[in-house]
């Protein structure tokens, strides 16, 4: 079950030539602006040209030095101030040691309230009123477990509706994720804690990962997300809910800005029926391991061989 070792595409593979080239480009850009560093082009209230160049020339997350990452976090905070007038706290909490996250969902309990969807949108700074939602709640007729019969657009006065049941689908955090394999520029990878993340500042927006995903779990920002300053969740993570821009992919990260600090994901806390269960797969006492040990579980589209870390189960009669 916990056989998965994330591949160690660690930060050790930096090329000096490439670094020199990047540094040269950055220095050139800084010279154009007449400042010492890219950020200095703007000063505290500039139009953001320096930060735009910094964003463009920024290195891959796994290849940045700690100082470069701090610079990137500071740039994200500056850009949020410029874009929303809001002071964010953008962090870079590393994966916790001896932790691999897993999720389970009790289908007997899900009533289709979509509280998880709303909480997810709000926690993860997704655009409001847009099509981009990282959880889709499918309504299925009783007697069918074929996702092709699912309807995510149900609008009832109240739920649940007799003769139907509900399957929320989000990123299944596969141990063998086809999206990671697909990405041409390695902008997405599986972290040691099992969460498949995206470097939003490295993604080129080709959408091949979303094409490869059998769960429809990856979503593209066709335009810039519509967010008002009051909508923003200010506690953010570089790989999690930092505000996204147009032209990049995003996905569920099990709210790593929360879960890496010991908190439960937002969808779980919002669920009014307690259908969602989250925990550390490496801890035999954890809730998720109890589910795996005591309930007959299944995963979506297991025949695809993606080894999801998201299980579904039902209560008995």
């Amino acid at each position: 079950m916990t056989d998965d070792d994330p591949d160690d595409s660690g930060p050790g593979a930096a090329w000096t030539t490439r670094r020199a080239l990047l540094k040269g480009a950055a220095a050139g850009a800084a010279l154009l602006g007449g400042g010492g560093t890219l950020a200095a082009i703007d000063g505290p209230t500039g139009i953001g040209l320096g930060d735009a160049l910094g964003d463009l020339l920024q290195d891959h997350y796994l290849r940045m030095t700690p100082a470069e990452i701090q610079g990137a976090l500071a740039r994200i905070e500056r850009q949020a101030r410029r874009r929303f007038g809001v002071t964010l706290d953008c962090r870079n909490d590393p994966p916790l040691a001896d932790v691999r996250f897993g999720f389970a969902l009790n289908l007997s309990k899900c009533k289709g309230t979509r509280r998880c969807v709303s909480a997810c949108v709000s926690e993860n700074n997704c655009g409001r009123g847009g099509t981009l939602q990282n959880i889709r709640v499918l309504e299925l007729p009783v007697g069918s477990r074929d996702l092709q019969d699912g309807n995510p657009y149900f609008t009832h006065q109240t739920v649940p509706v007799a003769g139907h049941w509900y399957v929320p689908v989000q990123c299944q955090q596969c141990a063998d994720p086809p999206c990671v394999q697909a990405c041409p520029v390695a902008a997405t990878w599986r972290e040691p804690d099992g969460i498949v993340v995206i470097d939003y500042d490295w993604c080129i927006g080709c959408r091949y990962c979303a094409t490869a995903c059998p769960y429809g779990a990856r979503h593209f920002n066709w335009g810039a997300p519509r967010l008002s300053p009051s909508d923003l969740t200010r506690q953010t993570h570089y790989l999690g809910n930092q505000p996204r821009e147009a032209g990049v992919m995003e996905k569920c990260t099990f709210c790593l800005q929360r879960t890496r600090r010991g908190l439960l994901p937002a969808c779980l806390e919002a669920c009014p029926t307690g259908a969602r269960i989250f925990g550390n797969l490496l801890d035999p006492e954890s809730e998720i391991r109890q589910v795996l040990a005591r309930r007959p579980v299944f995963r979506l589209k297991e025949e695809q061989g993606t080894e999801p870390r998201f299980w579904f189960f039902t209560d008995g009669p």
């Binding site: 030539t17 394999q181 902008a187 080129i204 593209f220």
Partner: peptide, 22 residues
């Protein structure tokens, strides 16, 4: 591409090509 200016990410050595996986 959603971010065409980032095409250099796919240039070998300069960027980070996901090869041979992708």
């Amino acid at each position: 591409l959603g971010r065409p200016l980032r095409f250099w990410h796919a240039v070998p050595l300069l960027g980070k090509l996901n090869w041979p996986g992708s």
